[in-house]
Amino acid sequence: MQTVIGVPAASTPPVPARHVQQRLRRITRKLPVLVILTIAGLAMLFPVLWILTTAFGKSNGGLATSNLFPSTLSLQNFRMIFNEQSTQDPVLRWIFNSVGVSAAAAVMVAVIDSLAAFALARLRFRGSKVVFTIVVSSLMVPFIALLLPLYLWFQYLGLLNTYGALVLPYAANAFGVFLLYQFFLGIPQELQDAAIADGASHPQVWWRLFVPLSTGITATLMVLTFMNVYNDFFWPLVATSSPDMRTITVGIEIVAIGQFQTNYTAMMALTVVSIIPMVIAFIFAQRRLVEGIAVSGLQG
């Protein structure tokens, strides 16, 4: 970093002191950014503080009586949700279902969308514009329009209340195609040309060149898909009927949202338990998420 521009030569102090001053200046220059980030970061933490306080507080009959900071800490709420687990609300099974379904959907989406995005972004073929327009247009269709038709279709296929029903509708992920398409457009044509000239087939170009170059964005897509599917509500709600096929988001509603009252303490305890898989996924994927992108990606 060139930070010495504009510093008069005459006032240059001895070498060690200059280093200190340089570092100090570097820090003071970063100070505004750090202050803004800290304020924003605290704002981001604010609601989660409430969620944790409610989850780790007393159960209070499920009412939201907690304030921002806990007066007493207890595991009452967690004990309660896992006690109920043995009889009617299999919480761990719900989480297992959610993790399995979301992971399966994430892998499927990554493979299917990467293949499709490669064809759309890097191959010339008849109808490419039509296919791309259809793919992007399908993003515009609100899911609510498809909910009932999908339900009837899956009933016809005999797939309701199965894992198939929970995974398959997410496979056609236009968002992923759109994201990877934008990314693949940014990969220099010369790289592709060089591989082709060296005799690589298209599947080889995709697998040896585009897949490695897009690990970062594909990981991002997978994490986002995982989270989307994990947090989806309406489809798993209508697609499943037996308690052991529910996903955790539906389970939380069943346990926590009553006709006349919301059981906030159970909801927040369940939420805290339910985000653990995603937090783990995020921590492991975090480096990949943004730094795996080797060549020019979404820029331009």
């Binding site: 159960s59 209070n60 009959g61 499920g62 009412l63 009586t65 006349f260 009252q261 059981n263």
Partner: peptide, 8 residues
């Protein structure tokens, strides 16, 4: 709502 209010 009596049940939860009694508890809190």
């Amino acid at each position: 709502n009596q049940g939860s209010l009694l508890k809190s």
